[in-house]
Nucleic acid binder design. Structure first.
Lengths: 194, 194
DNA sequence: GATATACAAACTAACGTTCGTTAGCAAACC
DNA sequence: GGTTTGCTAACGAACGTTAGTTTGTATATC
């Protein structure tokens, strides 16, 4: 009850910062901008946070966690690689569409992380991408998928999925699941008839 | 001959700026950074350019021009919508892969344009996207394509194509045309066998 | 002699952050 | 019950630095 009504100041800061980082980018958002939308002075922010970059770190690694958590469901899939890939895509899109602002920051602003966070971030990304490549590889070996370059395929699939945060409308007609489903359908079966 | 050997200072500035904007982002790149990689003082840049944003404008609108020019070839296609879409994708990817740095700036930094450039940019983008949607619409009506939401389809296709600048390696084994061809193939026919 | 290109110096504005302080409030003490 | 103590969250002022840009001037080239 309390958590719904009364958000901690720190939480408010992170939410507004996410919005601003999405709209203007991390570098183009000043601490004074952020303070202004919260109705306080820039100095007051530092009663709650350590630094500007700390906010970015929180956003990026929280989202990374969301993506990894969503994978648990995918691993449960014991059917075809088609089914597994479909499940992976839907889970991935679900995370994005349920956090469009954070996703935008996650995808566009991670490069402003300083070391050692940057290295850790990239290593997590590599791990995650590898999981998609594994499904493709398995699907190719089982004959379900066409003979394709796994990396090329993974990059193409993820780029489609990762763009959804730019146009997804939570109050639109398409639900999160429907979008994931349509994307999986398109990428697996193509635009052409037959 | 001359153009290959001796580039004007202005041209050098734009090239180095493109690199830096790609690597660090527009806002995170300072005029002193730019001057340094050119081996001159920041003040000296202003003997050649009007402002920092002017560089960004040049990059963004030059790329926009490239995309529109590449469309001339597409319009010549008189065959199926499949053939036309394929041609459009290949042409689009060709522009990107032949200008990876400029493309990165074009796709990631356009939001830092000030008015009226921002509005003009967005209007050009809308026009360009509309051309892809038209092909999809025609293909659906002719029965070549599945019954799909044109906008959803256009967004998915373009997001795949527009990501190529992030991983394309000019000295790699895949040529620009091959990449366009593979992308077109995947998006039209899907990953699955049969 | 004009033009192009570079410079040093300086400008105003803004940056992220730190500082010392304070107002409000709740618990602890006499 | 009144006073003291400590905490939280805010403040204004200022820190040192960097931002984009302007000005005036010197050198080199045509």
């Amino acid at each position: 009850m309390e958590t719904l009504v009364k958000k901690s100041r720190k939480q408010q800061i992170e939410e507004k910062a996410t919005q601003l980082f999405q709209e203007r980018g991390y570098s183009a958002t000043s601490m004074r901008d952020l303070a202004q939308v919260l109705g306080i002075e820039a100095a007051s922010l530092y009663s709650h946070i350590k630094s500007k970059e700390e906010i970015l770190q929180k956003i990026c690694f929280r989202m990374a966690g969301e993506f990894f958590n969503s994978w648990a469901d995918v691993e449960k899939e014991n059917g075809s690689m088609t089914a597994k890939m479909s499940k992976a895509m839907i889970a991935h899109v679900k995370v994005i569409t349920q956090n469009t602002a954070s996703s935008a920051v996650f995808f566009n602003e991670w490069r402003h992380l300083s070391e050692p966070f940057l290295t850790e971030f990239l290593s997590m990304r590599e791990d995650y991408e590898g999981r998609f490549m594994q499904i493709i590889d398995d699907g190719v070996n089982s004959g379900e998928f066409k003979l394709v370059d796994q990396k090329f395929m993974m990059l193409t699939i993820l780029s489609s999925l990762n763009w959804t945060h730019n146009w997804y409308n939570p109050s639109g007609t398409l639900s999160s699941e429907e979008i994931g489903d349509r994307l999986a359908n398109l990428l697996l079966n193509g635009l052409k008839n037959q």
